[in-house]
Design a protein around this nucleic acid. Structure first.
Lengths: 334, 334
DNA sequence: TTGCGACTCTAGAACGTTCTAGTTGCTGAC
DNA sequence: GTCAGCAACTAGAACGTTCTAGAGTCGCAA
């Protein structure tokens, strides 16, 4: 409890063990250059005194910090999965993560500035909202990886989902179930919305269903989905692909409230595999972004940049995969 | 992009501005002791060179780090809200947060060790799973605040919800709606489960409903709730309070699948106000822990400990509040 | 005996800050 | 003319590490 008495340092351990500071440093790092007996003795002393290395001093001296800064928004639909993946990938690459959160009361700029002071060697941003030009100037200082958004700037790396392919998979899935009248509820001005919509159009055309193309205006929220769901009432569609899971949830709520059976009367497919979609109570068929792959790519790209490796493609596009669940079923059932 | 060329330091700025390093330090900190003209000139140079202070060196020298370490589990039902609250509270108190996440592949021990190396001055743990004795030895090194769990150790501060009162509120709410036959689905061996169950019994007794007390075995997960929901079939209860929201969701799923109307036939009240409970599609009546109050208390307690202030009560218990939503309604409706 | 490499260990500088204890130069009171 | 007091500034130590260069010891081959 007493935070007054200074924490034990290398010098304390050295004095107690009767060796030099440098030697203790060697032992603590597990570096070669110490005798077995001394090594053991030093470790024992360090342990007894409760020695904890001071990463700040350590990093200060050694120049390198081996630290990747991560900015995430606590409201992001799968920030938890992404963090899990990033920690694993960073660990494998021999790097550490420092996190900085964006919250409703703490903006991205603040979060980034905090990390810059920590001298991390690269920055990984979850779906950044900063202007491209701001990201550019930031990227002039250190390697910058944007996730879930394709930032078009020559200094900024981007790791993101193949939105078009995701929409293809959703449509393909529904077509395979026998659906032809498939609508799409779009995401408005949300990033990724245009690509997902284009993917839908594309797939419909490929399946020769151009006549049944039906794009309803929507948005990223539950209420957007609910509004769009109302429009479905006038629509003969037997299936609908929705911009994201939250919006799909709004659609489901409206449909069920109207007594429409899902998936009996109409199939609904979301996008993102947000954590709530897995709840058996919701059980939403959706397109999952490959979180692990994206995390791995983001880290490996960051490491490559830090270590001065060659990069051919600024952009890494990761294929998603469809997760069939309970809100989609064969068209014949309807 | 080039991470090779050393970042600019105080010395660079000093050389460029033709003053001493110490003076630049004074200017950058906004400390008194520099003339207005020089101050302006130094700031301009610093800005031009893109100077960023190095928090590591800064903290190393000044001893204090003004850093609070926070360990959170990405699977925690409201870690996002808590982080939001903590950032705000820490900012107000003039402290910074460093985060360390627990993930399915990264355990609490690792998360804590990382923070210890960062020389933070206190540790705040979200519902820690470490043994009390381990927490005790940790607390010997630095102030330790456990949130959402009442750790019974004289060195460990605890900030947690008043579980009993939460259950009282749930029962009171249902009684006010005219329910008498109110069951409780418990949380098994989960921390907090005993308290929530006791609160339920308590409240039932207080309302003279001892004869209708009915505790069904449950657990923390959706499937636990679903299993318990099956048992409700044989039960005449018109309402049920559930250990937590996730379990309540399992109950809801089973009931609805059986064609039981919620809240028409039976009312369901959860606990925790997990983010999904707010989804209009789920709209679960629940007991919300007062996240902001808990965050504020945790931070202020940490700061008090760090600064050697007096603490009378080791434990801070925060009152929750009931959030009425769509899964509870008047008993007469049934 | 000497020389040499291998091994173990140490002294001291360095990292980028902050802090203490100055020095300088100016103003104004005596 | 002297000196106290103050504002503006500086030199250099300190923080806890790591790293470089080198010193001491030992065993063994020549």
């Amino acid at each position: 409890m007493q935070s007054g008495d200074r924490r034990t340092t290398l010098a304390d351990v050295a004095a107690e063990a009767g060796v030099s500071v440098a030697l203790v440093s060697i032992v603590m790092r597990g570096a070669p250059g110490a005798g077995a007996a001394t090594r053991e003795r030093v470790l024992a002393v360090a342990n007894r005194l409760g020695y904890q290395p001071d990463s700040r001093a350590r990093l200060l001296r050694s120049g390198r910090s081996r630290l990747l800064g991560v900015v995430f928004d606590v409201r992001h639909p799968f920030h938890d999965d992404l963090l899990t993946g990033l920690y694993a990938a960073a660990g494998n690459a021999g790097y550490q993560l420092t996190l900085s959160a964006v919250t409703p009361r703490r903006d991205e700029r603040t979060a980034v500035d905090d990390l810059l002071q920590d001298r991390c060697e690269a920055l990984i941003l979850f779906s950044p909202r900063l202007r491209t030009s701001d990201l550019g100037t930031l990227a002039a200082k250190l390697p910058l990886i944007a996730m879930m958004r394709n930032v078009r700037h020559r200094n900024v790396d981007a790791v993101h989902n193949d939105e078009q392919k995701g929409s293809h998979q959703a449509v393909d899935h529904l077509v395979a179930l026998g659906h032809r009248r498939i609508a799409h509820i779009d995401g408005g001005s949300q990033p990724g919305s245009a690509e997902r919509r284009a993917g839908y159009m594309d797939a419909m055309t490929r399946h020769g269903l151009t006549d049944f193309v039906q794009v309803l205006p929507g948005g990223p929220g539950e209420d957007d989905g609910a509004r769009a769901g109302q429009l479905l009432r006038l629509d003969p569609s037997t299936a609908v692909t929705v911009f994201n899971d939250l919006s799909a949830l709004g659609v489901l709520a409206v449909l069920r409230r109207r007594g429409v059976d899902v998936p009996g009367d109409i199939s609904v497919v979301g996008y993102d595999d947000s954590s709530f979609s897995r709840l058996s109570h919701i059980d939403l068929t959706t397109v999952a972004q490959d979180v692990d792959a994206m995390a791995t790519h983001a880290v490996s790209r960051a490491v490559t940049r830090i270590e001065g490796g060659a990069v051919t493609e600024r952009e890494v596009v990761v294929a998603p995969r469809l997760i069939p669940r309970g809100t989609s079923a064969s068209a014949s059932a309807g």
